[in-house]
Deep mutational scan, measured.
Amino acid sequence: QCIKQELICKWIDPEQLSNPKKSCNKTFSTMHELVTHVSVEHVGGP
């Protein structure tokens, strides 16, 4: 049986000017979605 898990993006953008810096905190249900999000939204490139 599949256990529902919540994956949370903890990326902190080093360019943020606010202190304390905020992490992204978007939630995902699969590791694939999380990896895709980080690749596209934070790292950039294909």
Results as ranks from 00 to 15, higher is better:
residue 41 E to K: 06
residue 14 P to N: 09
residue 2 C to S: 12
residue 37 H to N: 02
residue 18 S to P: 08
residue 25 N to H: 14
residue 30 T to V: 04
residue 5 Q to S: 07
residue 31 M to Q: 15
residue 5 Q to G: 06
residue 20 P to C: 01
residue 4 K to P: 07
residue 2 C to V: 15
residue 12 I to Y: 08
residue 36 T to I: 07
residue 20 P to L: 08
residue 8 I to D: 15
residue 3 I to V: 06
residue 23 S to W: 10
residue 14 P to D: 02
residue 33 E to V: 01
residue 33 E to I: 00
residue 41 E to A: 10
residue 35 V to Q: 15
residue 9 C to Q: 02
residue 11 W to D: 03
residue 44 G to A: 11
residue 42 H to I: 01
residue 11 W to S: 07
residue 5 Q to I: 00
residue 39 S to D: 15
residue 8 I to T: 11
residue 1 Q to W: 05
residue 45 G to V: 07
residue 27 T to L: 08
residue 8 I to P: 12
residue 20 P to A: 07
residue 42 H to P: 00
residue 25 N to T: 12
residue 1 Q to D: 14
residue 10 K to H: 14
residue 31 M to T: 11
residue 27 T to S: 11
residue 31 M to I: 15
residue 42 H to F: 00
residue 21 K to R: 06
residue 44 G to P: 07
residue 4 K to T: 06
residue 6 E to Y: 02
residue 23 S to L: 14
residue 22 K to D: 10
residue 10 K to L: 06
residue 7 L to H: 14
residue 13 D to Q: 04
residue 3 I to Q: 14
residue 9 C to S: 01
residue 9 C to P: 01
residue 22 K to A: 08
residue 22 K to R: 13
residue 41 E to C: 11
residue 37 H to M: 02
residue 16 Q to R: 04
residue 16 Q to E: 04
residue 16 Q to C: 10
residue 21 K to A: 10
residue 27 T to K: 14
residue 11 W to N: 07
residue 2 C to A: 09
residue 22 K to G: 09
residue 6 E to P: 10
residue 32 H to F: 11
residue 17 L to H: 02
residue 41 E to S: 11
residue 42 H to Q: 00
residue 18 S to M: 05
residue 38 V to P: 04
residue 34 L to T: 02
residue 38 V to L: 08
residue 2 C to Q: 13
residue 10 K to R: 11
residue 7 L to V: 12
residue 38 V to K: 15
residue 14 P to Y: 04
residue 41 E to V: 09
residue 23 S to V: 13
residue 37 H to C: 00
residue 9 C to R: 01
residue 38 V to S: 14
residue 8 I to A: 14
residue 28 F to G: 03
residue 44 G to M: 05
residue 22 K to T: 10
residue 33 E to K: 03
residue 1 Q to I: 09
residue 43 V to L: 06
residue 27 T to P: 08
residue 15 E to L: 13
residue 40 V to K: 09
residue 40 V to M: 12
residue 6 E to I: 00
residue 8 I to M: 11
residue 32 H to W: 13
residue 17 L to F: 13
residue 23 S to A: 15
residue 20 P to K: 07
residue 32 H to E: 12
residue 28 F to C: 02
residue 14 P to K: 01
residue 38 V to T: 12
residue 28 F to N: 00
residue 42 H to L: 00
residue 43 V to E: 15
residue 8 I to S: 11
residue 3 I to M: 13
residue 4 K to N: 09
residue 12 I to Q: 08
residue 46 P to L: 03
residue 27 T to G: 13
residue 9 C to F: 00
residue 33 E to W: 00
residue 4 K to G: 06
residue 20 P to T: 03
residue 32 H to K: 10
residue 44 G to K: 08
residue 5 Q to K: 12
residue 37 H to L: 02
residue 12 I to H: 13
residue 37 H to Y: 00
residue 33 E to Q: 10
residue 18 S to I: 04
residue 40 V to R: 08
residue 1 Q to R: 07
residue 32 H to N: 14
residue 1 Q to A: 15
residue 9 C to V: 01
residue 25 N to M: 10
residue 22 K to P: 09
residue 38 V to D: 08
residue 35 V to H: 15
residue 7 L to I: 09
residue 19 N to M: 10
residue 13 D to T: 01
residue 8 I to F: 13
residue 13 D to A: 09
residue 26 K to L: 15
residue 43 V to C: 13
residue 36 T to C: 07
residue 7 L to N: 14
residue 22 K to W: 04
residue 11 W to F: 14
residue 15 E to D: 06
residue 29 S to I: 05
residue 15 E to H: 07
residue 13 D to G: 05
residue 28 F to K: 04
residue 38 V to M: 14
residue 18 S to L: 08
residue 12 I to A: 05
residue 36 T to G: 10
residue 11 W to P: 05
residue 37 H to I: 00
residue 45 G to N: 06
residue 7 L to T: 11
residue 35 V to L: 08
residue 37 H to S: 01
residue 44 G to T: 10
residue 41 E to W: 04
residue 2 C to F: 08
residue 16 Q to S: 12
residue 18 S to D: 09
residue 29 S to V: 08
residue 7 L to K: 15
residue 23 S to E: 11
residue 13 D to Y: 14
residue 21 K to C: 02
residue 14 P to Q: 04
residue 45 G to T: 09
residue 29 S to F: 07
residue 25 N to S: 13
residue 1 Q to V: 05
residue 17 L to G: 05
residue 25 N to P: 14
residue 31 M to G: 12
residue 40 V to G: 12
residue 24 C to D: 03
residue 37 H to E: 03
residue 12 I to L: 03
residue 13 D to W: 06
residue 19 N to R: 10
residue 33 E to F: 00
residue 12 I to N: 04
residue 21 K to D: 05
residue 5 Q to P: 11
residue 40 V to L: 05
residue 35 V to S: 15
residue 21 K to I: 08
residue 3 I to F: 03
residue 14 P to W: 04
residue 27 T to R: 10
residue 36 T to P: 01
residue 7 L to D: 05
residue 15 E to V: 08
residue 44 G to H: 06
residue 40 V to C: 04
residue 16 Q to I: 09
residue 36 T to L: 04
residue 15 E to A: 12
residue 28 F to A: 01
residue 6 E to V: 01
residue 4 K to Q: 04
residue 41 E to F: 04
residue 30 T to R: 04
residue 3 I to R: 03
